[in-house]
């Protein structure tokens, strides 16, 4: 059953969390802080085997604060020896990752299915 929170839609399949963003624009820090809190909860709930896939299919805008949030999340997931994958990143958003060279830091897949299959 999908679990609806304010900022993200989370579908849990065992230890796998599929996350979709509700906002088309992940720009301002207030929203980003809320998203971060929701996403970090998904990680701290478990001691091991966290698997997260974030789908950016709905997202049109992303700021550097959002990138910072993803970096924090990635760090937390790694601390718990889990995996974090990103998918469905639109070209203009991918550009933001490329400019900051974070495309090399994250595992990015074209589609949610590909990201899931890689787990």
């Amino acid at each position: 059953m999908p679990e609806q929170t304010t900022r993200v839609k989370v579908t849990k399949l065992g230890t796998l969390s599929l996350v979709q963003f509700a906002d088309r624009k992940i720009l301002d820090e207030l929203a980003i802080q809320e998203i971060q809190d929701e996403l970090l909860k998904l990680v701290t709930d478990r001691d091991d085997g966290n698997r997260l896939v974030l789908s950016f299919a709905n997202v049109d805008h992303l700021s550097s604060a959002a990138l910072g949030m993803l970096i924090t999340l990635n760090k937390r997931v790694k601390e718990k020896k889990g995996t974090l994958k990103l998918s469905d990143i639109k070209p203009q958003i991918f550009e933001v990752f490329k400019i900051t060279r974070l495309n090399k830091m994250f595992d990015i897949y074209d589609t949610l299915e590909q990201a899931r299959a890689s787990l």
């Binding site: 700021s63 550097s64 604060a65 990138l67 910072g68 550009e95 933001v96 400019i99 900051t100």
Partner: peptide, 9 residues
């Protein structure tokens, strides 16, 4: 400076 980097780009 990620924000500055994006602005410059």
């Amino acid at each position: 400076g990620r924000g500055i980097m994006l602005m410059r780009a």
